[in-house]
């Protein structure tokens, strides 16, 4: 297996990105990173109030972790651009995950607004990781707009249903040249392994880790699944066959 993979100008060892939403406490973040060896974390952006009783997440993120700012809360491209610029200013990161939603029922990303925001932010020099409903045409537009990656959802956020959008993601992996990171819907390590077997370059997992009984352990389990899935992909996954193949083909007798 290759030692590193390159993305947006950085060399990473781990193909597991972890989201920090829904966590019961930020205190476990250092352990999650050390046990899973994940290097990339997403964070969201919000006002800090002077008398807040809330802990500051930055106190728990190691200095060498790669922070990806998520624009969640944005309902359109304009809001996403604003959140991205503000977030980027905080730790001088230029990795931005564009998440634009206006529907509280499914949290379905707005692909059109995402393309708009990607165009504007890429022009300004940000490294854009757009989160989308898997659509090959949108993915092509994002590639043309200068995104460094596309992040198609496996299933809607929080549903833990696995890679239900498999048939829509496969063409994206095949046709798109920039890295494809499957994000959302990964509910168990086997889903993460499947994503990697499909040929995804990385996965982003949030809910399944954050709400598990032991997020630290689950992050490690996810990491192992990502490694094994990638290893299998690089070795060559066997095709699924519709019928049993005998070890001696039926027509072998003709060769005797």
């Amino acid at each position: 297996m290759q030692k590193h993979f390159e993305i947006a100008g950085k060399k990473l060892k781990s193909r597991l990105f972890i989201g920090t939403g829904k966590l019961p406490t930020y205190k476990i973040i250092p352990q999650m990173l050390s046990r899973s060896k994940a290097e990339v974390l997403t964070v969201a952006v919000r006002r800090i109030n002077p008398d807040s009783k809330v802990e500051n997440i930055l106190d728990y993120i190691p200095k060498n972790a790669v922070i990806m700012v998520n624009t969640s809360g944005a309902r359109n491209a304009k809001e996403a651009v604003r959140i991205a610029e503000i977030g980027a200013e905080i730790t001088k990161t230029d990795w931005i995950k564009i998440e634009i939603e206006a529907d509280t029922r499914y949290l379905a990303p707005d692909n059109e607004e995402t393309v708009k925001a990607t165009k504007e932010l890429s022009r300004k020099g940000f490294k854009i990781f757009p989160y989308i409903t898997p659509d090959l045409i949108t993915a092509k537009k994002l590639q043309d707009a200068g995104a460094v990656s596309v992040m198609p959802l496996g299933s809607f956020i929080g549903t833990n249903k696995g890679i239900t959008a498999k048939t829509l993601i496969e063409p994206i992996i095949k046709e798109i040249k920039i890295p494809v990171i499957i994000d959302a819907g990964i509910g168990r390590p086997s889903h993460a392994a499947q994503a990697m077997e499909m040929g995804a370059d990385a996965v982003l997992v949030n809910t399944a880790i954050a709400i598990s009984k032991d997020p630290v352990k689950m992050s490690e389990a996810m990491s192992k699944a990502v490694e094994s899935g990638r290893m299998a992909y690089e070795t060559g996954i066997l095709k699924e066959e519709d019928y049993a193949k005998p070890s001696s083909p039926l027509t072998d007798f003709l060769n005797n």
Partner: peptide, 20 residues
């Protein structure tokens, strides 16, 4: 109440919306 919430393995939040 905050202590009970944390004891149950949950995090108390005091506000919901991003207001940027």
């Amino acid at each position: 109440i905050i202590k009970i919430i944390e004891k149950k393995g949950y995090r108390p939040e005091f506000t919901n919306w991003v207001k940027i």
